[in-house]
């Protein structure tokens, strides 16, 4: 499950200026947190899914997000239901009321469950939203967009390096898992969820040590090429906001206004 891998394509999203995408990503993220109306959060999720489809991003990855998060959503909905007081009770208390101290606990309220669903919807929206940018923008263009928007090159570079490191770490983790499997460690193939969870910390040792070694090497390589010596940089590949980008931003503004109006009016 990778969120940062660039997927080759020529859709509208692929062609947009990274700045336009970053602006829309930021605003939509804020809106996702504001919106409380189920219809509207549903509309946002539908929009995001449609954009996935239109950009021809891998539906498999999308499905894997849903699969991966189902457990978390059930947990959130149940927990919210248990601890959020409400009038309408969905599930009667697990522990009878006559039990001292803990009597009456374990009831799930409708309001709580609904709130849990809202939180879950927000999480899935956020998780599906980010790849719409990261999967349609080559990482150096993403960094260039940020720099052009005023972020210092050093910070943009750090960010892109961090993002680039994720697949490297994923690869290294799988090597360590292979090494463990080769020594008859069965958990990754046959173990339960809890066993797997317990097995992960062992992976951290080689990963962290490897990351530190790499960081040190990279620092030396960057210093030896005078990283940060020039305050004003020029770029081999430049980005220019085109009429198309402004048009998309305008449509996006109308969309946001509609969602917000819908949220507060309905």
């Amino acid at each position: 499950m990778s969120v940062v891998q660039y997927v080759e394509g020529n859709s509208l999203l692929h062609r947009l200026d990274p700045r336009a995408k970053i602006i829309m990503l930021t605003i939509l993220t804020i809106i996702i947190f504001i919106v409380e109306n189920f219809l509207m959060i549903g509309a946002i999720l539908l929009t995001i899914l449609l954009l996935w489809w239109s950009a021809r991003l891998p539906m498999k990855t999308l499905a894997s997000y849903f699969k991966f998060l189902t457990g978390l959503f059930v947990f959130i909905i149940v927990i919210q239901g248990l601890f959020y007081s409400g009038e309408v009770i969905l599930v009667q208390p697990l522990i009878p009321r006559w039990v001292p101290l803990i009597g009456g606990l374990g009831k799930i309220s409708l309001d709580g469950a609904l709130f849990g669903i809202l939180i879950s919807a927000r999480i899935i929206c956020l998780i599906c939203l980010l790849p719409l940018v990261t999967m349609t923008t080559p990482i150096h263009f993403f960094a260039l967009g940020l720099t052009k928007m005023g972020l210092s090159y050093q910070i943009a570079y750090t960010m892109t390096t961090a993002l680039n490191t994720i697949p490297v770490l994923q690869n290294e983790a799988s090597v360590v898992m292979d090494a463990q499997k080769l020594r008859a460690f069965r958990v990754f193939e046959e173990g339960s969820f809890v066993q797997k969870l317990k097995a992960y910390p062992a992976l951290a040792v080689p990963l962290v040590i490897g990351a530190m070694r790499r960081a040190q090497l990279m620092g030396v390589a960057m210093d030896s090429r005078a990283f940060g010596a020039l305050k004003r940089r020029t770029y081999v590949e430049d980005i220019i906001m085109k009429p198309q980008d402004y048009a998309v931003l305008a449509v996006f503004a109308v969309y946001c206004a509609a969602v917000l109006v819908g949220n507060f009016m309905l």
Partner: peptide, 19 residues
Amino acid sequence: ADLATRVGFVLQNPDRQLF
């Protein structure tokens, strides 16, 4: 895991497999 007792495999780069 079952094959591991028959065939031992030393992967490339020791640093990635010491944990």
